[in-house]
């Protein structure tokens, strides 16, 4: 089995996919870093201070002003309220919610890339792992060896999991290194709050806990990795089912994007919470923002994703071992 995984790795490296992905991540991180830097600059310029308390205070006032406007929707209003209460809580407890530094940037980058950007990167690898063998024709050579089909597929799946872990690690390292050049490399020990309880009434703060930033990041990474594995497994299944890489990618892309759109508008369509794509923003539960649909919690989302993962894997193996190869 190790030899088979070696094979898959050899092919992956020869295709230079991981390099391309690392390059894309680097470019994006550089872009985000610059944007963040600009934002901090303008804010300081506007308020004439560098003190985070003043800035946070100003943000709270801004939000309150927006809330008093009647033109915004109820959903959005609720979101804002939750955010407002959270900001107030941070202010009351004298904790800076965005301590400047590379670790904070990393956290922000992870939170923003968990539902679309990282899944996309994972898809680049997962969606042609099997279908490329079909379009190349090499599947005929691969399946006429004294190796059972499920082993061939398992070696590909293990390779996928390894690459995903690598992608997540690369994301962490690159975002830390690049943003650190601008914001400095400190801030691992900064306090972060988690455990906010979002309910119909608003924000519950009974179970709020104080974590060091590095602890929080570790959990974030775990969640990001889990989401990446689930999305990777789904595109892996599509790669088995659909012989064309482009078609498989298209389907997955449509699902991911529809997820991003749906999250903003499904609050009244309750059963949509069983779709995998609205459950991808796991890090939001850590941060404590209102979920897209009432009643969604971290464990609920984890369970939904787990079911999708298991089903995709079962389908992939079932079809691959049974199907005629032309």
């Amino acid at each position: 089995m190790i030899k088979l995984v070696q094979n898959e790795m050899m092919k992956l490296i020869a295709k230079k996919r991981l390099l391309v992905i690392a390059a894309i991540i680097a470019v994006l991180v550089a872009l985000f870093t610059y944007a963040q830097y600009k934002q901090v600059e303008t804010q300081r310029h506007k308020l004439g201070t560098n003190d985070w308390r003043t800035i946070l205070q100003q943000q709270i006032i801004d939000t309150q002003n927006r809330l008093s406007s009647s033109r915004i929707s109820d959903d959005w209003k609720k979101q804002l309220k939750v955010g407002l209460q959270q900001q107030q809580y941070y202010l009351d407890h004298n904790i800076n919610p965005s301590e400047p530094g590379a670790p904070t940037f990393m956290r922000m980058f992870l939170e923003n890339s968990i539902d679309l950007f990282l899944p996309l990167m994972v898809m680049v690898i997962a969606s042609d792992l099997v279908s490329s063998e079909h379009s190349l024709g090499s599947i005929k050579l691969l399946l006429t060896r004294p190796v059972r089909r499920w082993k061939v597929l398992l070696s590909k799946y293990i390779t996928l999991c390894l690459s995903i872990s690598l992608i997540v690690a690369i994301t962490g390292i690159i975002s830390y290194l690049i943003s650190g050049m601008v914001f400095g490399y400190k801030g691992w020990g900064a306090p972060v709050l988690t455990g906010f309880n979002v309910t119909n009434q608003g924000l519950g703060t009974e179970s709020v806990k104080l974590l060091d930033q590095w602890q929080f990041l570790l959990m974030d990474f775990g969640l990001v990795w889990f989401v990446a594995i689930v999305v990777g497994t789904l595109s892996f299944m599509l790669s088995v089912l659909i012989r064309s890489t482009a078609a498989g990618m298209g389907v997955m892309l449509a699902a991911l994007i529809s997820g991003a759109i749906l999250s903003n508008m499904v609050s009244s369509w309750n059963s949509a919470k069983y779709l995998f794509m609205v459950n991808l923003r796991l890090t939001d539960y850590m941060k404590g923002t209102a979920p897209p649909i009432e009643g969604m919690t971290l464990s609920f989302s984890l369970a939904v994703l787990l079911v999708w993962w298991a089903a995709a894997l079962a389908v992939a193996f079932w079809v691959f071992t049974k199907r005629d190869v032309y």
Partner: peptide, 12 residues
Amino acid sequence: CIVENPELYPYL
């Protein structure tokens, strides 16, 4: 065996 054309990996 070779079935139809020997489709080996061109990038290796």
